[in-house]
Computed example of a mutant assay.
Amino acid sequence: MPEPHEDKRPLAERIAAEFRKLIMSGDWEPGRKVPTNEELRARFATSNVTIQRALQILKDERFLEGQTGVGVFVRSDRSQTIQPAHYIAPPEPGQPYRWLSEATKRQQRGKYKMLAVRESVPPVEVARALRLAEDGTALLRSRIGFLNDQPAELVKSYYPLELASGTRLADRRLIPGGSPALLQEMGYPTRSQDDVVAARPATTEEYEALEIPRDVPVIEVFRIVYSDDEKPIEVTLLTKPSHRFKMGYHIEL
């Protein structure tokens, strides 16, 4: 029989992992005061130095906030659940992209900043999803989404050149109503969407753009959007900081 897999991480990291789970699950609610160092030393049978290291990890990751002379508290905002299905359909004519309107419903300020619009050789998995020829190129639209002025997602969307060239997709400006509205206007309505969700360490680009603290991983969503006859019209690589967001899905059976 294989030997049990032992957690050999330093105790401070294991303690931080336990508290991180309590915070992200909501068991420790925003604003809750963390037990005193004395209580934590007794609970984990360890030293004050180890407890301080564990708490500092979570402060660096912005899960905990210290108040001098008062104590340590759970951060004031909860992890936010994002439901991608809310953004599939195009908005009503004249309305903003649904990602922005959903932010408004949550009393948040949403905005996008364009980073680049150019022809690009996409990653292999994107090229396969778009059914491109070997070494084929696609149109890349890269941008950052902000919620209340905090970076919330890094988005890289790829489009077949025969579909995108000469259209507003190739324009560096933001698209009113977002790409779903424009694609529908162009005769490519969204019919379905496939998402693959993973977690991994951040790249340097993601670390800097999303202001990732310490070793917090990112949530990666690989999304394929299909139109009529299952034609792939958009492939998006989306990354979000996992200490602030969770992905939610509602499935009807």
Rank of each mutant, 00 (worst) to 15 (best):
Q193F: 02
S227F: 03
E162P: 04
R141M: 08
L130R: 06
E208H: 12
A199N: 13
A198W: 12
S179M: 04
P160C: 00
G177L: 10
V117S: 13
L174R: 15
E211Y: 03
Y188K: 01
V216K: 05
G177E: 07
S165G: 06
A138N: 10
D215T: 10
E134Q: 14
R143H: 07
T204G: 00
R200V: 12
R173G: 15
V196A: 12
L161G: 02
A127I: 04
R118D: 08
E205V: 08
S192E: 00
L182N: 11
S142C: 10
A202C: 08
E153V: 14
E119C: 13
A127H: 06
I175Y: 11
R223S: 02
P122L: 05
A170H: 07
A133C: 03
P160Q: 00
E162Q: 11
L169H: 06
A198Y: 13
T203M: 02
V124Y: 10
L130I: 04
G145T: 13
R173A: 15
R214W: 04
P122S: 04
S120W: 13
R143E: 05
T167S: 12
P180L: 00
L139M: 11
P122F: 07
L183Q: 02
D215N: 10
P123A: 05
P180Q: 00
L147I: 05
L174W: 14
E205Y: 07
D195Q: 06
G178H: 03
P160R: 03
Q184G: 14
T167W: 05
G145I: 08
D215Y: 08
E206H: 08
N148T: 02
P122V: 04
I144C: 14
Q150G: 05
D215M: 08
Y158G: 05
P176H: 13
A133K: 10
Y159V: 03
V124Q: 13
P151T: 09
V225E: 03
D215C: 06
D171H: 14
S165P: 05
E134H: 14
T204Q: 05
G177R: 09
E162K: 11
L140D: 09
E220T: 09
Y188I: 01
E205C: 05
R143F: 03
Q150D: 08
G178R: 05
P176S: 14
D135Y: 14
T190M: 06
A170C: 11
T167L: 06
R143K: 12
A133R: 12
V216I: 07
G178W: 03
L130A: 01
P180F: 00
T204R: 04
P151N: 09
R131E: 07
V117N: 10
P201E: 07
N148V: 00
L182K: 11
A152N: 09
S142T: 12
L183G: 02
L139S: 08
V126C: 01
Y226Q: 01
L130E: 01
L147N: 09
P123I: 07
T204V: 02
R141T: 06
